[in-house]
Amino acid sequence: MENIAWGLQMTVLGMGLVFALLALLWLLLTLVLKLDKEPEVEVSAQEATLEAERIAAIADDAVGAQTPERPTVNGMPADLVAAILVATHKHRKTMRRQAAPLVRIAWPGSQIFASRWLATGRARQNNNWQPRGK
């Protein structure tokens, strides 16, 4: 029980001290920034994120800050390559579907058009299986 009381005391004192110290640091930093008189300008979130990414990339080299390396394909992130592949494939399929009415020579089921399957079958039927000259 004595230990718990000591622990509670540690918690209150410890957190109080940490907060007090960092609040003091906040005040000092605000003061320094006021003296610095650098103007504050609005920036877009994307710009700020790019800058943050640059800072994070440097810190990634620190021990204990490592993130597992993501797989790449010719220097590009593998998931991005996969996404591009899926998108182009889908685009190609869509284009084919949209272009079909214009480029097909005969409507599906038409008697004047024979599919490759049908054409091959007809060709096989016309071929004599017996050796020539006999």
């Binding site: 930093l29 320094v32 920034l33 610095d36 650098e38 103007p39 504050e40 300008v41 609005e42 920036v43 877009s44 979130a45 710009e47 700020a48 800058e51």
Partner: peptide, 15 residues
């Protein structure tokens, strides 16, 4: 919201 403040070299050294 984002507002960017240029942090001078002096402040970065003072920190």
């Amino acid at each position: 919201p984002y507002s960017s403040r240029k942090i001078s070299r002096r402040t970065r050294i003072l920190f």
